[in-house]
Design a protein around this nucleic acid. Sequence first.
DNA 1: CTGAAAGCGCTTACAG
DNA 2: CTGAAAGCGCTTACAG
Lengths: 347, 347
Amino acid sequence: LPTIYDVARTAGVSPKTVSRVMNGDAPVNAKTRLAVEEAMLALAYVPSSAARTMRSQRTGLVGLVTGAFSGPPAEGGASGLPDLQIVQGIQRVLVDHGLTLLITDTGGAADLIPQRMRTLREHRIEGMFYVADHHLKIALPPAVRTDHLVLVNAFDREGTPCVLPDDEWGQHALIQALLARGHRRIGYLTLPQTLVAHRLRLVGYRRALEEAGIAFDPALVVDADRAGAPEERGLLQAAVARLMALPQPPSVLCCGNDRLAVAAYGILRASGVAVPEQMSVAGYDDYRVISETLYPQLTTMELPYARMGEAAARMMLADLRGLEAPAEGSRISVLGELRWRDSVVQL
Amino acid sequence: LPTIYDVARTAGVSPKTVSRVMNGDAPVNAKTRLAVEEAMLALAYVPSSAARTMRSQRTGLVGLVTGAFSGPPAEGGASGLPDLQIVQGIQRVLVDHGLTLLITDTGGAADLIPQRMRTLREHRIEGMFYVADHHLKIALPPAVRTDHLVLVNAFDREGTPCVLPDDEWGQHALIQALLARGHRRIGYLTLPQTLVAHRLRLVGYRRALEEAGIAFDPALVVDADRAGAPEERGLLQAAVARLMALPQPPSVLCCGNDRLAVAAYGILRASGVAVPEQMSVAGYDDYRVISETLYPQLTTMELPYARMGEAAARMMLADLRGLEAPAEGSRISVLGELRWRDSVVQL
DNA sequence: CTGAAAGCGCTTACAG
DNA sequence: CTGAAAGCGCTTACAG
């Protein structure tokens, strides 16, 4: 492979001048520059980032660890796939700023983290992202603490800078929209009680009702728990039946995520209930493979993963460029978009 | 950050001895080794891969480009998400062998490839993967040709080594299984005609029928085209209606992918047809978010992405280790697993 | 089993 | 606007 010396010789200049042409860190005579550029092209020269790193002590590398916090897939999170959009959002912004992302996916095996972290450190990453596959409170293993760390979809008690979806706002906005369409009895098939998202969303649900002057009715709220899981279909079936049998049954079923909505569609139709004519359904996540494929298409609240990734990347950039280190406890909440489709009728 | 010299000084040995302890490339006295290991620990020493690369001329880096070949998502492929499993499969195997994957996701923008390739070259990757999000014939841009290149889910006319799903085998096995359950009239909602997978699967479909002594009936085969796309629901609806109106209607609907199966469920039920009692449905892909969430759970043929990734990684390893460079034209076909669930009845 | 010297390919710090 | 010298932190190639 050609080196900077080969280019310099071919162009009849010093290596330092070639360096200047590449990095634009000092003025270069137009004719000289041209000669250098020609030489680089002729030799198909590509500089070595290892050598550059060595001397400059800057790598332009940022690490990302994901899959680390997932329990078995489907445990509340939507099987660990959508968080890919977080990663894509991060990468898009970073490459635009000349940084390279070093991604390490532990596939949920937390014990792999120390080894992976070591590899990242050998590469002298300048910052690091932790990406969880669902809104999670974590306790960072000491081996993992680093400077310039940003958590995405996760937070800790130490106040490590993080980017989160605004679950309370999201559920509130969704319920508000249902109310605006005339729904008054809103059934709620919740996520597992242990999830952070569940607690926040329940607050949003209640606040929206309260603001509309509607009393909270516990009978309308069903812990669907792992009802997305196939084994639990019976539970969900019973829960839906119970809601339908209420003296004043709901006119819409609000589901903790889009997978639950799929299950709800199936259960309702199997009992001869038309969706949405006899029962409206709403989801959460906007997991598009589901929400756009279902018939009727699903009204749902987006989990803004792509934008969360972008926000996290910008946070990192500001930090690395020294513009502003994110303060301890900085936390960005990203609002989702309401995706209004065809699964909810106007009353 | 501490260097090898710091470790050497602390341990009272030469840098070269520290190097030997790290790399195990020559015998080291047990006591000396211990002293060195203690020093490394005490200083929290992490070697610099840039320096190592510089001198040894080996980076241990392998590049991966994905998202490059996707048209707009959902154009036949299942929205670009499942190919993540290919990437995960590759990474799992590579890290087990001490290699690091440098992933670059172009998000479908082919014009970004040259720039991304350059970055990979600056990092002196030793090999490279191209990962497509669905079975695709490609023409590699010249800027992208490299040594030690492996295509995954894609192939070209030059015979670049590649790993592919065995679509013909898969469809054949699925149809065989349906036949074994007594189905004789097998409706087939195909993928878009232009897809490689479509042609291969049609061959498998026909061969299975032929082997069972059943005449191929073109009336049972419907080009569902972009029927997975919401806009085309009307088309799909008409197609299903046509199949049902046949003098001898099918007993099962075989769908080109799992998303089509979701649409089929919806359409059938909306017309009052019970799944699977009155009509069985089968998919393709085993896109688990769908196949395990639907009610009833979907019988489908797996697209073996994880194992394709692993196979590709092993191919790369054999190549890089010089065990055996894959011959021009080497091509690995990976068989999927039949996932028999509840959407197909025994007749 | 151990070490001294040199060099990988750049950029830094100076000098002009 | 341009260049000569040195050094980043390792491993190679030798020598003992």
